[in-house]
Amino acid sequence: MEDWFNTLSQGLLLGGMYALFATGLSLSFGIMRLINVAHGDLIVLAAFAAIALVEPLAIGPIAALPIVMLLMAGFGYLLQRLFLNRTLGDDPLRPLLVTFGFSIIIQNVLLEVFSADMRGLDAGTIETASLPLGGDVAVGVYPLLVAATAVSVIGALQWLFYRTALGRTFRATSDDHRTAQLMGIDNRRVYALAMALASAVVAIAGVYLAIRTSVGPSDGPQRLLCAFEAVAIGGLGSLWGTLSGGMILGVAQAVGLKLDPGWGAVSGHLAFLLVVVLRPNGLFPKTRDR
């Protein structure tokens, strides 16, 4: 029984990590209907950016986070403004293949600069500390921090979306970009801002990932799949849905892993396939797919 409680809590906390992976993708998919195949590679890029900064600046990973967020936001803004905005239109192939091209470019540039070695970030004792909850039950401090961060990031984005003028602009552009232009909204700039925001969240995901585990330049695609599955399970345009999607994925993997060590990742994929077979639009869709 306590065993299963541990599995469940591990799953939920792993889910927090997945939710962090997925939030950036959920933003770009929700606002621009853009599936960014390079999303996972951006997470890895952020992780390596932090790794590269920590030593020369002699700062901890958490102190490096704001710098990485700024860098990634700038990178995302330019990526959207210079390249991805040109792919928007009725043909879904173009954004898919252009971001796929970027995925290959980012992976191989990282490989060239950092070699194929796995690297991580050291955040000190917080990584191994745990909170005993009585009996054999304990919760790691770091996974708890990840989950708390995921919830607060999504809470903050929710506030931005529903309480600010910028959020209103995002939602209007997501609903109908043509009419949005008739309101004086420069949709291309809005998209670039959305990508900057998504990339800042990607930076959080990347830094947290590198603290939790070692990262290699070709890890991006697996991160993308997790992120995409969480978004699809949760439903398009719903940030809380994305959080719950991440949780479902995390629990499914933890349970699968407990039953047989080889089947952890598969059970996550199977959970995703099960959800999309039963509810192709996800569990809590808010926005209609165009």
Binding site: R86, L97, G101, I105
Partner: peptide
């Protein structure tokens, strides 16, 4: 090696755009 793959990626992006 990797530079070749980077070139392929750039070519894909350029053609698609």
């Amino acid at each position: 090696g990797t530079w070749y793959l980077i070139a392929l990626g750039i070519l894909t992006v350029a053609v698609m755009l």
